[in-house]
Nucleic acid binder design. Structure first.
Lengths: 212, 212
DNA sequence: TCCAAACCTGAAGCTTCCTTCATAAACCTG
DNA sequence: CAGGTTTATGAAGGAAGCTTCAGGTTTGGA
């Protein structure tokens, strides 16, 4: 039987004054830093608060519990990446397939690489209790977006758009993750940007039911 | 500063009699079950022992600490998958590229899907303290294996074998993971098997420096 | 200036968990 | 079956973490 979620994940109180807004952001940022320097297992609310320069009590004023804090951080990042991906999809509506793929892939890689530290830290949260659920729900939105985009390609008819979109997403996410976990050196990132485009272009080409 | 490993991860005692061999295996299996039903965060040594039908003390007789237990389980699985992958690579030495890819990919997918529960449970461990390290070191072995295999393809010359091998591996791992986390239904697995082959075939083809 | 609301503090309660060890049972060999 | 070895037990020590709350400080408007 899967574990049940914490009862409340909603923020306990929303910032009103400017200082508390700063505090809330500092806490979220601190969570990422602690995640990176100590690992999930040793991420404690006290340590996060300390790193953020506030007391534990303050943390609990805005996040009902530890899990809610982690989820909030995860969700913020996923939302951001998803938004950038969606925008790239819209922008490439009607483009020929090769250009479309290039545009979307590069947008994705850039979004993920903008803050490599955050991306890496979040893989750890995602593996936690229920984290998979969050990832999956955001993933589904992106999935639909890509699927729709693929359907607008002029002169191309895919055999199974749904699955093709899934493979493309999984490939993007998987290879990017691999590079991130290998250290995300500039050389690697550059290689990823180029090869991932090539990879998806050739895949989509060969999935096209219409002749070559 | 990254977290340091536990001092000892080596087994404290190796089974001599038959009953203890059974016990050790039961404990490892129980760890997987608990991981799946309760999540990493709620995996406790007591719970694992209970599930295995032994007392905590027994667990500590063979595993020096909790982390060692988790690592042992992770490593066993990775070794198994790696071995199967290597074998597939050797078997396809000299084959034309399309056949080679098909053989290797299918071996990998089958290895991962043989026990979907284990594969899924281990993603959680891998995210833990140092787990990334274990995965990376095993991954490097596979990387070299695949790289060498790619170099034996008759009539094909890759521009950057090293990176190409990396992309291929990351894609295999990434898409397989995606399907696993989506529930690994027979339909999905079937689709993965087919599309992943197609994906890698077309990618490798387009990486080939020798014309089409 | 004054006050209510917003914000912050951090010691302490409570729970959970890891790990040990003294003791007991099971096994095996001669 | 006797003695030594291997294996199993589980209560309890001790450490660590999550969360609360009673009381203090700061802010911003009237």
């Amino acid at each position: 039987m899967p574990v049940e979620m914490q009862s409340t994940l909603e923020p306990r109180k929303t910032p009103v004054q400017a200082r508390s807004t700063v505090t809330v952001e500092a806490i979220a940022e601190a969570a990422i830093q602690v995640l990176l320097s100590h690992g999930v297992e040793r991420l404690t609310t006290t340590r996060v608060a300390e790193r953020a320069g506030v007391s534990v009590g303050t943390l609990y004023q805005y996040y009902p519990n530890k899990q809610a804090l982690l989820f909030a951080v995860l969700e913020a990042h996923l939302d951001k990446v998803t938004a950038l991906l969606s925008r790239a999809c819209e922008e490439s509506h009607g483009l020929p397939i090769k250009a479309m793929v290039k545009h979307v892939i590069e947008a994705f890689v850039d979004a993920k690489m903008e803050r490599t530290d955050v991306s890496m830290a979040l893989y750890k949260i995602a593996a936690e209790l229920g984290g998979v659920k969050v990832v999956r729900s955001v993933g589904e939105r992106s999935h639909r977006t890509i699927e729709q985009m693929l359907m607008t390609v002029p002169g191309v008819q895919f055999e199974d758009v749904k699955f093709t979109a899934r493979m493309m997403m999984a490939t993007m996410a998987g290879t990017t993750r691999n590079v991130l976990e290998a250290g995300a050196t500039p050389a690697l990132v550059k290689g990823l940007r180029k090869h991932l485009v090539l990879l998806c272009q050739s895949y989509l080409q060969s999935c096209n039911a219409h002749a070559v």
